[in-house]
Design a protein around this nucleic acid. Structure first.
Length: 973
DNA sequence: TACAGATCTTA
DNA sequence: GTAAGATCTGTAC
């Protein structure tokens, strides 16, 4: 929160009573649930959100919260036991609506705040103070006079019913005192509805007069003897202490401990589908119509949500809270998400993991028992044990299940004797390990459970388990992934990763058996199938148990921290999409790679011989250490620099500079390195990944970058060469099979476009709208050179600066990139910021936000945490700041292509196209398309990609996608 | 055998 | 100047 921000605080409890009384009583839904107040509440909230957005109410909110009362007992009861003692119980038909209204607020994707032991007014007072201190403005949506004491500079009260705004002047007109005197006035007048006594015989008018004359309550009480009117004087003298007590009762607590921070109230677009699902469930047809019209959600495509207030469960895929048959968790519906999450963490951390209770399932009856238990709880954590870390090559060895914390089992399937079984027949190998249910039977029994839409399956790194099960004919769904939940919550460069062992130690305080402890490593590595079943059972069941416990701790945090949208829209649905891409793989031409390897080897050998002659002795060219000795020691070449570790630096840029000075040796070393790199990393290595159909299956990691990008490994298909001609030759080996083409579609300048949008730079936005060459435009702005006939070097420099901006530019880095003095680079940057001052403002805003909150956010709300942003080491801090500046840009682009990928399969299917997505390379998607569908596919792919930000973010710049199809990746790209 | 550092590939 | 992963070398264990 900062200057210019605007916080809206809705007094939810007052809202409820107004909605209830404003509507005809006994409005009921078809199933009999009374929903009059819910309806009124939703209408008012929608109207408020919509109107405030259109700024007719005043300034549009940047932060928003709905605040509720949480309990009847507060610190005021300790002061005065009669406080609110004569409050009447709420009407009977209103009671069940309270929980539904909290659901409504969540459906609107608005933060819903309440705290045990505190009144809504105190929370409102605290948020108001914090917002004002941060320099922001506040609109309190309420007409309660108790809140008038908060009105002041930047703080107003808004009465939605009357459409009236109350500032200090309006308060004075109404009560005869300015807001800062409201507390004293209330102390004198009292409040019969809250049982605040006040001073008998003193009403608002008298109180205002007295305060006008005496200034403050305390001054009045001290000098009450001077009051002329006898009755008034005696009453005040007699009730002075009562007035002081009343003052304490009506004074709002501006220092309530908060569980939801001010910055967590940052507003974002409502999730149309979630909201419509709720409204449909409530049968609010006219509001549904208005909402869909506004948000562009297709109501017919959305199913009504399950909102059931009679049972604590809300359906397993929405909430890991009350599961039917699970232990009592309290009526969490009445809790804030944050309180719920905190309670969960405490509960799980307090329950130790006990491996001795796990069961090894060796017959069908017991397996059926576990399946039945899973059906009772509605949630099951599972984990597959296999022969390989590579999901595409892995065979099932066993499988574990957990249905409740501490209630877990392992189902051995393909364990063999201690010898390993390599030389034995299956049957002989399985001797002596005890009974195991045959694989086919296990699958037959588990398939209905794993595919049951009503049973939530939880896994750690679910893509792996999903893929293994899919290869065994099981389409696991719905699926939650603890690794991805952790990633969404805590993506950070300095925090460790999201592996299960790590998460378990962090959140449960428990260290699970590691794979290494179970199977050894290196020379001692033993196939898991050959490890004693009882030991594997403990290990595997523990993994499922821990996964379930982690899920119970982490899942509620998503809602509490406003990250449910990121998880539900950008992570969860991508799991099966990526799994299928990995499963398909891409066809590769072994011959092309082999020919290239030969050519590279020959050329490298020739260069190596030359190098040895020029060096005067044979040495290992691949050793930078030996090379440095030769170049800068023996031959005494100039320009020797040291690396961090004191070795001679021999990187390509340095060698290029030497070559430019006319030295033969460095040139050849650069060439040799390129060839051996291409050979070693690509042409030699790629064939080892090919399967029987000559296809290569990469593995995507969804949780290993701080920004939200994917990464690819084994092999990495996101760094296949493209810049040099020899490198590009490798791309010709990635081919489409007979009758097909490869289609490559990539976003043009997506990061710069997003920068233009996010920083709101008019020149850049306009240039993108008109389709102007952005680097030439930048050069023209900076150097005053007309775009027509611009020298290529001028454009090149501008291009480097544009890239630099996205990377959080430094003079040092730009100087290195352009091989110019640092002073010159610094001058460029200065000039750039003069021409585009909005960029500097934007960067400052991002840094400030990060400093305040410890994180930055993408357009879609994904967070990247930078705990070291406040480092006292200027170099560290500058590096973190650059990362923090880059993350929202890189991350928003990553979010956009994720959205495109999630929507792509359905869009293609809807057009009856059989194109298959194979690869993602950050801003590019590669498809395999039948020859005769290429023409029809291109517009569909482009449309999905170009509209991927809709409807959550309306970009000020167009997204442009270039798409081309060809027989191989090089020609398509 | 395991790990860190240097180097090079991509967006 | 951002974000990744793979390979090779050299050294520590």
């Amino acid at each position: 929160m900062q200057k210019g921000d605007h916080l809206f605080l809705v007094d939810g409890s007052a809202y409820i009573f107004r909605a209830y009384h404003a509507l005809p009583p006994l409005t009921r839904k078809s199933d009999g649930l009374p929903i009059g107040a819910v309806s009124g509440f939703c209408n008012m909230l929608w109207k408020l959100v919509e109107e405030s957005r259109e700024t007719s109410v005043g300034v549009a909110p940047t932060h928003f919260a709905v605040i509720f009362d949480h309990s009847s007992t507060t610190f005021r009861n300790a002061l005065y036991d009669q406080y609110k003692a004569n409050r009447q119980a709420p009407p009977e038909d209103l009671v069940p609506q309270f929980a539904v209204i909290r659901e409504a607020v969540r459906a609107f994707d608005l933060p819903c705040v309440e705290k045990q032991g505190f009144e809504a007014d105190d929370l409102i007072a605290t948020y108001t103070r914090l917002a004002v201190e941060a320099g922001g403005d506040v609109t309190i949506v309420s007409s309660d006079k108790d809140l008038m004491q908060l009105v002041g500079p930047g703080v107003i009260l808004y009465d939605q019913m009357k459409d009236k705004r109350l500032g200090p002047q309006e308060v004075f007109e109404k009560f005869g005192v300015y807001p800062e005197k409201m507390i004293d006035l209330q102390a004198l007048v009292g409040d019969s509805s809250d049982n605040v006594p006040g001073v008998p015989g003193i009403g608002p008018k008298t109180a205002a007069d007295l305060l006008g004359a005496y200034g403050t309550l305390e001054n009045l009480l001290e000098n009450a003897g001077e009051i002329k009117q006898a009755k008034r004087r005696e009453s005040i003298l007699a009730h002075a202490e009562q007035a002081r007590l009343s003052k304490r009762l009506v004074t709002l607590d501006q220092h309530t401990p908060l569980e939801v921070g001010l910055d967590d109230l940052f507003i974002h677009e409502p999730d149309g589908e979630k909201l419509v699902a709720f409204l449909k469930a409530m049968e609010f047809t006219s509001l549904t119509r208005r909402v869909t019209a506004k948000l562009g959600t297709d109501a017919s495509a959305v199913e009504a949500a399950q909102v059931d207030v009679t049972a604590p469960a809300r359906g397993p895929d929405l909430d890991p809270g009350g599961t039917p048959g699970g232990e009592k968790t309290g009526s969490h519906l009445a809790m804030t998400p944050a309180a719920h999450a905190a309670e969960r963490l405490q509960a799980e951390a307090a329950t130790p993991v006990d491996r001795s209770t796990y069961e090894t399932v060796r017959d069908e009856a017991r397996l059926e028992h576990w399946i039945a238990r899973a059906r009772e709880t509605g949630v099951v954590a599972f984990d597959v044990e296999t022969t390989s870390l590579d999901a595409m090559r892995a065979d099932l060895v066993g499988l574990s299940l957990a249905v409740a914390p501490g209630e877990a089992a392992y189902v051995p399937i393909a364990h063999v004797g201690e010898g390993g079984g390599d030389l034995l027949s299956d049957e002989a190998a399985r001797e002596g390990v005890g009974a195991q249910i045959p694989l086919g039977t296990v699958l037959d029994l588990l398939k209905p459970l794993l595919e049951d839409p009503a049973i939530l399956k939880v896994a750690q790194n679910a893509k792996y388990d999903y893929l293994v099960m899919r290869r065994h004919g099981v389409e696991t769904a719905p699926l939650d992934d603890t690794m991805l939940i952790s990633y969404v919550l805590d993506a950070s460069s300095s925090l460790e990763g999201h592996g299960m062992d790590e998460l378990s130690e962090r959140f449960l305080g428990h260290k699970p058996i590691s794979f290494k402890e179970l199977c050894g490593s290196g020379r001692t590595l033993k196939p898991i199938a050959a490890v004693a079943i009882e030991r594997v059972s403990e290990y595997a069941a523990e993994d499922a148990d821990v996964t379930l416990r982690l899920w119970r701790v982490l899942k509620p945090r998503l809602a509490a921290e406003g990250l449910a949208h990121v998880y539900e829209r950008l992570e969860r649905p991508l799991v099966p999409v990526l799994a299928r891409m990995e499963e398909r793989g891409i066809r590769t031409d072994r011959q092309i790679l082999s020919r290239l390897s030969g050519r590279f080897a020959q050329k490298a050998a020739g260069l190596e011989a030359d190098i040895h002659i020029l060096a005067g002795e044979p040495f290992n060219v691949g050793s930078p250490k030996q090379l440095g000795e030769i170049l800068f020691g023996k031959l005494g070449l100039p320009g020797g620099k040291k690396t961090k570790t004191g070795q001679w630096a021999t990187d390509a840029r340095l060698l290029e500079d030497l070559a430019a000075e006319g030295h033969d040796l460095p040139r050849r070393i650069v060439d040799w390195r390129q060839l051996t790199k291409l050979k070693g990393t690509y042409t030699d290595a790629l064939p080892t990944y090919m399967d029987a159909e000559d296809r290569i299956h990469t593995s995507y990691s969804m949780a290993s970058t701080t920004t939200g990008r994917l990464s690819s490994s084994e092999p990495n298909l996101q760094n296949i060469p493209v810049r040099t001609e020899e490198g590009r030759a490798i791309r010709t080996a990635f081919v489409a099979p007979a009758g097909h083409k490869l289609l490559s579609a990539d976003y043009s300048q997506i990061e710069l476009r997003l920068l233009a949008h996010m920083a709101e730079i008019p020149q850049l936005t306009e240039a993108f709208r008109q389709g102007i060459d952005i680097h030439a435009m930048t050069a023209s702005e900076m150097f005053g050179v007309p775009v027509e006939g611009m020298p290529s070097d001028v454009r090149r420099r501008a291009k480097a600066i544009n890239f630099g901006i996205v990377y959080g530019i430094s003079a040092f880095g730009l100087a290195a990139q352009l091989s110019i003095p640092r002073e010159e680079a610094g001058a460029y940057i200065k000039r750039y910021f003069e021409r585009f001052p909005g960029i500097r403002d934007y960067m400052d805003r991002v840094k400030l936000f990060c400093r305040r909150t410890g994180h930055v956010e993408t357009l879609f709300g994904r967070r990247a945490h930078y705990p070291d942003i406040g480092s006292s080491n200027p170099q560290v801090r500058a590096a973190v700041e650059r990362a923090a500046i880059n993350a929202p840009i890189q991350g928003s682009a990553a979010d956009i292509i994720r959205r495109a990928m999630v929507r792509m399969e359905e869009a293609l299917a809807a057009e009856r196209l059989s194109a298959r997505m194979l690869l993602q390379v950050h801003d590019e998607l590669v498809f395999e398309v039948p020859d005769d569908e290429v023409e029809a596919t291109i517009p569909v792919v482009r449309r999905v990609m170009e509209r991927a930000a809709d409807p959550v973010v309306e970009l000020a710049v167009p997204l442009v996608v270039d798409a081309r199809a060809a027989a191989n990746w090089d020609e398509a790209h």
